[in-house]
Amino acid sequence: MLIQGNKNDKMLWGYRAYVAAFFIFLAAPLLSAATFAFNDSLFPALPWQGFTLNWFFGDTEPKLGMFYDRRLLSGLYYSFIIAVMVSLLTVFIGTCNAFLFVRKDFPGKNFFYILMIVPLVIPGVILGISILVLASSAANGLENQFNFELELLRPGIFLVILGQISFTATITSLVIAAKLKKFDITMEEAALNLGASTNRVLWTVTLPFLRSAMIAAGIVAFLVSFENFNTTLFLVGSESPLTITMFDRVHKVGSTPVLNAVSFFLMIGSGLLALLSIFVQRDKSARN
C-alpha cells in the first residue's frame, strides 16, 4: 500500500479526511439545488423560512409550483418525446453496429471503427452547428430550386433529435458491442445444429442475451438526451426542451425556487433510472 505501517496512521486519517472532503464537494451543489425546493421563500437563498411543497404543487402566483407552470411542463414534455425517440433510434443503430463490428469482417473495418468513435471527441457545440448548417443549406436549396419549403429541416424537434443521435449512437454502440463480445458463439451453433433457422436463433438466443445491454444503453441514451445542452442549443426551434427553458430562466429571468423543484424532480428521476440500468445489468450478469 502507498501508506503503510502504524507510524503512518495519521497520514491515513488525513487521507480519509481528504476523501471525505471531496465527497462533500461533490454533494454540496446538488444538496443546495435540492434543498431550496422546500424553502417557503420567494428566493432560493438563506435564511430558511420553513418547509413547503408549494414549489411543486402551488397553483397561484407568486408561488406557482412546477406542476402548474405551463412552460416548464411543456419543456418536460418535449424533453421526454425527444429522449424517447433518441433512445429508441440509438439502440437500433447501436445494435446494428455491434453486430457489424463484432461479427462481420469487411475491408477497412478498423478505419470505420475509428469513424464510429470520433463523434464522442467532437465538441457538442460543433456537432450542433454543423448539423444546423447542413440542414439549413439543404432546406434553402430545396426552396430555391423547387420552391418547396421543408419545415422539417428548420430548427426544431426533428433536428434536435438528429443532433443528439449523432453522438449518443456511439455510446449505445460501445455498450452493446461490449456485451456481444462476451457472447459464447457455441450457443448459436448449438441452436443451429438443433435445426433452428438463422432468424429464429437471432430472436430466441442472441437478442435475449443482449437484452440487458440494450435496455441499459437505452436508459443511458435517454439520460444523455434529457440532459444535453450544447448540441441542442443550436438546433432548438420554438418547442424548447426543459434544459433550454431552465437555462433561459437561470440566465435571464433570475431564479425562483421553482427551478430547485425541477432540479429535485430531475435528480430523483435520473437517479432512479441510473439505478435501474445498473440493476438490469447486474441481474443478468449474475445469472450468466
Partner: peptide
C-alpha cells in the same frame, strides 16, 4: 446523471 445545468445552478 444530473445535467450540467443543475450542477451550475447549485454552484
Amino acid at each position: 446523471w444530473v445535467s450540467d445545468l443543475i450542477r451550475a445552478f447549485g454552484w
